[in-house]
Write a protein that binds this DNA or RNA. Sequence first.
DNA 1: TTGTCATATTCCTGTATGGGAATATATTTC
DNA 2: GAAATATATTCCCATACAGGAATATGACAA
Lengths: 116, 116
Amino acid sequence: MPRAATTADVFNAIAEPRRRQIIELLARRGALAVGALVVTLEMSQPAVSKHLGVLRKVGVVSVTKQGQQRLYQLEAKELKMVHDWAKKFERHWSHQLDRIKERAERKAQARREATS
Amino acid sequence: MPRAATTADVFNAIAEPRRRQIIELLARRGALAVGALVVTLEMSQPAVSKHLGVLRKVGVVSVTKQGQQRLYQLEAKELKMVHDWAKKFERHWSHQLDRIKERAERKAQARREATS
DNA sequence: TTGTCATATTCCTGTATGGGAATATATTTC
DNA sequence: GAAATATATTCCCATACAGGAATATGACAA
C-alpha cells in the first residue's frame, strides 16, 4: 500500500506547506479569487488551482462562482478536527514543560548549594 | 518536485493514520516497547519500527534502551506546534458555527410565523 | 560459542504525488 | 462570432513513499 492520497483526509491535505499558506491567507483576507492567491503567493496558476482542488475535496475550502472568477473561502470546521486531535495531548506537553522547569530549578538549587 | 518526505516535518509525519494511532497509544499508556505496540496495534514489527523511525526523526517520540528492548516515549511539544497552528483558525470555525445556528433560528422563526 | 529474543534495515513494487508546459473550458467584451 | 480573461485539466517526470519478505544487528542466556 502506497502513501495515502493527499485528498484522503485533512491531515494529508495540510501536510503540504503551500496548502497551509493558502489556508492562512484565506483566513486573513477572507474569500479570494484564484488570481489573488497566484499574485500574493507567487505560485503558478495551475499549481494554485490544483492545491485548491485538494483542499476543496477534503472540505477545507468552498467555492462560489462570481462571473468568470471563483471565490475560495475557508471552511474552518475541518481544521477544528486537527485542533481537537492535537488538543488530546495538551496534558502531555504541559507536563513535559513542568519537568523541564523542575530540572532547571534543581540545577539552579545545586549551584546555589555549591556556591554557599 | 515530488511530495515532501514524511520526515520533513510534524505535519507530514502525522498524515499517516497508523502513526497517529501510535501517538495516541503512547499518550494513553506511557513509554512502550516496540513489541507492545506490535501486539496492541496488530501491525507487523518492521512496519512499527519504520513508523517509529519517522516519528523519532521529527521529534515526536524519543527512545531509551533498556536491555534488548527499546522504550518509545511521546515528546508532545512537537504536537503543540500542530495545535498552535490549527488554533489560529479558532475564530473562523466558531463564527461559522454561529452562522449555522443563526440560520437554523431564522428558519424556526419563519416556521413559527407560518403556523400562527 | 551458540542459540534465542527484540528490534532495525534492506530490497522490492505499485501507487500517488507536485510542478511545469500546454491545452481545454467558461465567461465577458467588442 | 472573435478576441480576451480567469480558471481548470491533462500530460509528463523524478521522487518517495507503505507494506511484505527476508535479513542484519544487538543483547542476553546457557
